[in-house]
């Protein structure tokens, strides 16, 4: 066996929502095929920093470990992404790990993404089909539309697009690119389209679609490859049509 190799991590930590962030270095034994999650599990097993001091283990959130739940999003080497698919072998060391500070930090790498849920509620990102009687089967969807909707449906509200967007910050009230994709998802559904004006108007409220500055970071950063900029431009077209219709019909 060759000599034991180590993985160097620099974690930006924060003890509580209101405490000051600080950096802490860790040196953990290398194993084959590690990802950032397993590296942090190693810290959890032996919470000793690079200086040899015993510290509180690093807190993070994770769930599915296969990049479909979005819970383990964090900023790794400057890029927001999921820790589960961040393979140690493909990362430059020392690996710099930070929380997505666009969101309120709860502790260490745990952030509160509830603003995303609020944004989804605001645009009514659902299809109202509940009734007191059987509504029967819904209309069929053309294959082309289904493929488009499938891409949009991959959103896991991970928060990466908000972290990447230069217009989502404390000075702006932009709800974020992801919600535009969700408006398109539900507006392109034949039943959902019955409420498309309602969703569109909610999207054009303060802090909505118009806050996009076309840096197109969202589409570059999205781990699911969702065509967010196409959804944004499509919504812009919908908004233009909607605006003129409203002016000329009333």
């Amino acid at each position: 066996m060759s000599e034991q190799q180590y993985v160097q991590l620099i974690v930006t930590r924060q003890d509580g929502p209101d405490s000051q962030p600080y950096k802490e270095e860790f040196k953990i034994p290398y194993r084959k095929n590690m990802n950032v999650i397993s590296a942090m599990m190693e810290i959890q097993r032996n919470p000793v920093n690079a200086k040899g001091e015993k510290v509180a283990p690093v807190q993070w959130e994770s769930n599915c470990l296969e990049e479909v739940c979005g819970a383990c999003s964090m900023v790794i080497n400057g890029k927001p992404r999921q820790a589960c698919t961040a393979l140690v072998d493909r990362l430059e060391q020392p690996i710099r790990i930070e929380p997505m500070r666009t969101f309120p930090v709860i502790r260490d790498l745990v952030v509160d993404r509830s603003r995303m849920f609020n944004a989804l509620k605001r645009v009514k990102a659902w299809i109202p089909i509940d009734g007191t009687h059987d509504l029967g089967p819904g209309p069929r969807i053309a294959e082309n539309d289904r493929q488009w909707r499938y891409e949009l449906s991959k959103c896991m509200t991970c928060g990466v697009c908000l972290e990447a967007c230069p217009n989502v910050n404390t000075k702006s009230n932009f709800v974020g690119p992801f919600v535009v994709g969700q408006v398109q998802l539900f507006n392109s559904h034949p039943t959902g389209a019955m409420n498309k004006e309602e969703r569109l108007e909610a999207l054009l409220d303060d802090g909505g679609l118009q806050e996009c500055g076309n840096s197109q970071n969202c589409v570059q950063a999205c781990p699911k490859g969702i065509p967010l900029t196409t959804a944004i431009a499509k919504s812009n077209r919908d908004a233009t049509v909607h605006m003129f219709k409203k002016w000329l019909s009333n």
Partner: peptide, 21 residues
């Protein structure tokens, strides 16, 4: 609008992000 942006070409070194900045 310009003062609202948090420019981040350091982390996102893409053509469109440079154009944005």
């Amino acid at each position: 609008i310009a003062l609202q942006a948090k420019n981040n070409v350091g982390n996102f070194n893409t053509f469109r992000n440079w154009m944005f900045t």
